[in-house]
Design a protein around this nucleic acid. Structure first.
Lengths: 163, 163
DNA sequence: TTGGAATGTCAACAAGACTGACGTAAAATA
DNA sequence: TATTTTACGTCAGTCTTGTTGACATTCCAA
């Protein structure tokens, strides 16, 4: 098994390479959330609110259960966040016509406005990073991210892409 | 400014591309932490403990202040985590000889053992993702991650690399 | 030598995750 | 039709991990 291919592969996947990836993810995630966090603070919201706003905007009319699957939290946890967003009229709730047990979630105009503000901040940093790294790097970036997800989340991620 | 280069660039950085990057980071980070989390649960530790173990292993003999800068939390928050790690003899503490205010941190043998267990789990997933995506993708992945960090963290990240 | 800066500790609190139990309404099914 | 299942909400309690504020110790420089 000591042919060129396996040696190259061993050389490539050194502990140092893996460690850099791990630390890279850790530090980059901090940058990734830093800008939205600053905005959220002004409104007394947290990251949990941001995530809910993001995916309600992404999948308008989604029901609670679907959102639960995407976010990967318990309904109690989501409910707390959702309640304040509805109270503050950033999210509106419509009872399902076909299945009246379901609550369909939508962003109100002020909800859309805050979501836009947050996603603009986050996109701005992402755009800068993409620009610095270049198109090929971005393609690789996405490939590795996708391969790092749990299989179920990979499916969820792809579904969001096509829907 | 409507030359080929700028048009290509506009085409490349669509909102959809940026959104995919944002959601990719969100879902991938979940995968990134999933395996260590499962191990930590067995020992009644959390992610904060993992992070401390990782960087004490990475920079043996570091003082609390330096660790604070790397982790980006308050000293009170780190202290709680550090206290339990010291109580459970995963981390040992040595008062500085030159400056007796400083506490230098080291992993004990059991600390090294747990850290190894955690980093093995995390590296395993990272290795698989790297293998699936290929060397070029990995290079791009790292470039984008680095460009996404806050400038200060970028410096910290690079320092860890060379030290 | 004394006062400020740096380092670290203790106490209290808040956000946001979790589990478990329970209630209600609606849909599905036996 | 009666029963079970599903979707959603809520209350209570706990845990982790972040925060501030107050305080102790140590070093250094005016």
């Amino acid at each position: 098994m000591q042919n060129d291919r396996s040696r190259e592969s061993l050389l490539f996947l050194t502990d140092e390479q893996l460690r850099q990836g791990i630390e890279g993810m850790f530090f980059a995630y901090r940058g990734f959330t830093a800008d939205p966090d600053r905005i959220l603070e002004k409104y007394n919201y947290g990251r949990a609110h941001h995530r809910a706003l993001h995916f309600i905007n992404r999948v308008p009319g989604t029901n609670v259960n679907n959102l639960l699957c995407i976010l990967g939290v318990t309904k109690q946890s989501l409910n707390r966040v959702l309640r304040t967003l509805i109270e503050n009229e950033l999210v509106s709730l419509k009872i399902g016509t076909k299945d009246r047990r379901e609550r369909h979630l939508y962003l109100t105009d002020s909800g859309k406005s805050l979501e836009k503000q947050l996603s603009n901040a986050q996109s701005h940093r992402m755009r800068e990073a993409y620009r610095q790294a270049g198109p090929d790097a971005v393609a690789g970036f996405k490939q590795v991210l996708e391969a790092m997800m749990d299989p179920k989340l990979q499916v969820t991620y792809k579904k969001l892409r096509v829907s």
